[in-house]
């Protein structure tokens, strides 16, 4: 009797609330899936004007950038982006790898307690602050110290400065992934190697790094895609000259900088507008490509531990 009352009076509303919650939450979750599709199709639609008038080959492999006379060659921007990101990875990768081994294998907990906030703060510093730091510290350093060593004269606003700033920005990002990757390696594997008479260093070299290799590669891939899309900090120190860079002391003009510098001012020329949206699309495709590839590698790597 009593029980029935509880069931009759309370249960239906509770169940209705539950059902209601389920529905709207599902809708919001679906919204999440739609967003990237929406962005890609929007960008594709906007860049169709450019693609109608030019062949893809012409756009990507031509280096003639004269928007006013309808010439849109993206090669200088693509090459600048490649230079900057690859060089920054070249700087960041060894530092991250060595530090990750140090923090996971050798460091005691006091060092860890000190380094964790350091990494977190580095990861949290806004892009524009890195740009300011680049202008204050890196640009003069490159112009006055590094370039003279190679007998080069430069303003300091060049590929190398941008790469150094970018390297510092991706270090916390890559380092965090690497630490996670190395920590998923079971400790028993180290124990097995040690009990076969191997020293710690031998174990790290032949067992841990080997086991972590796919993870290390994908961490670098994710770092690459992160630095590829970085805008403001790079824009502030890279020099912004639309020509294919011929060396690390040359200025460059990466894709994100192109969008940031020109968007909003080119509305009068539809083709120009379309070209910039195409560069956003290009940027997104390249970034997604590296991202998906690296994440698949990580996922297949994690599966092997189950």
């Amino acid at each position: 009797m009593n029980w029935n009352r509880i069931r009759d009076n309370i249960s239906p509303t509770r169940l209705q609330i539950n059902k209601f919650n389920e529905v709207w939450m599902l809708v919001w979750t679906l919204f999440l899936v739609v967003v990237p599709l929406f962005i890609v199709s929007g960008l594709l639609w906007k860049s169709s004007l450019l693609l109608e008038n030019h062949t893809l080959k012409e756009i990507i492999f031509s280096s003639e950038w004269k928007p006013m006379s309808g010439k849109f060659g993206f090669l200088p921007f693509i090459m600048s982006s490649l230079w900057v990101t690859l060089l920054s990875l070249l700087i960041a990768a060894p530092i991250c790898l060595f530090s990750a081994i140090h923090l996971t294998q050798y460091a005691n907990r006091y060092v860890l307690r000190f380094m964790q906030p350091v990494i977190d703060i580095l990861a949290g510093i806004p892009s524009v602050i890195y740009g300011v730091w680049g202008i204050i510290a890196v640009v003069p350093f490159v112009a006055e110290k590094i370039a003279p060593m190679f007998g080069v004269q430069t303003t300091g606003y060049n590929i190398l400065s941008a790469s150094i700033v970018l390297a510092v920005m991706v270090i916390p990002f890559i380092l965090n992934i690497l630490i996670d990757i190395i920590n998923t390696i079971p400790k028993e594997l180290t124990e097995a190697s040690l009990s076969l008479g191997a020293g710690k260093w031998y174990t790290i070299k032949h067992v841990i790094l080997r086991k972590a290799l796919p993870g290390i590669i994908s961490a670098m891939g994710l770092g690459l895609s992160r630095s590829f899309g970085e805008t403001i900090a790079v824009l502030m120190v890279v020099g912004n000259v639309a020509a294919i860079p011929s060396g690390i002391f040359q200025p460059g003009y990466p894709l994100p900088a192109l969008i940031a510098n020109n968007y909003g001012e080119m509305m009068s020329i539809p083709q120009y507008d379309s070209a910039l949206m195409f560069s956003a699309l290009l940027l997104m495709i390249i970034v997604l490509f590296f991202n998906i590839g690296s994440r698949f590698l990580i996922m297949s790597y994690e599966k092997r531990f189950k």
Binding site: P186, E188, L189, E191, A192, S195, G197, H206, K211
Partner: peptide, 17 residues
């Protein structure tokens, strides 16, 4: 010292090679 003892653990952990 460790070389004088072979170790078998609860689950086999073959080295990644």
């Amino acid at each position: 010292i460790r070389k004088r003892m072979g170790l078998l653990s609860q689950r086999p952990y073959p080295l990644p090679m």
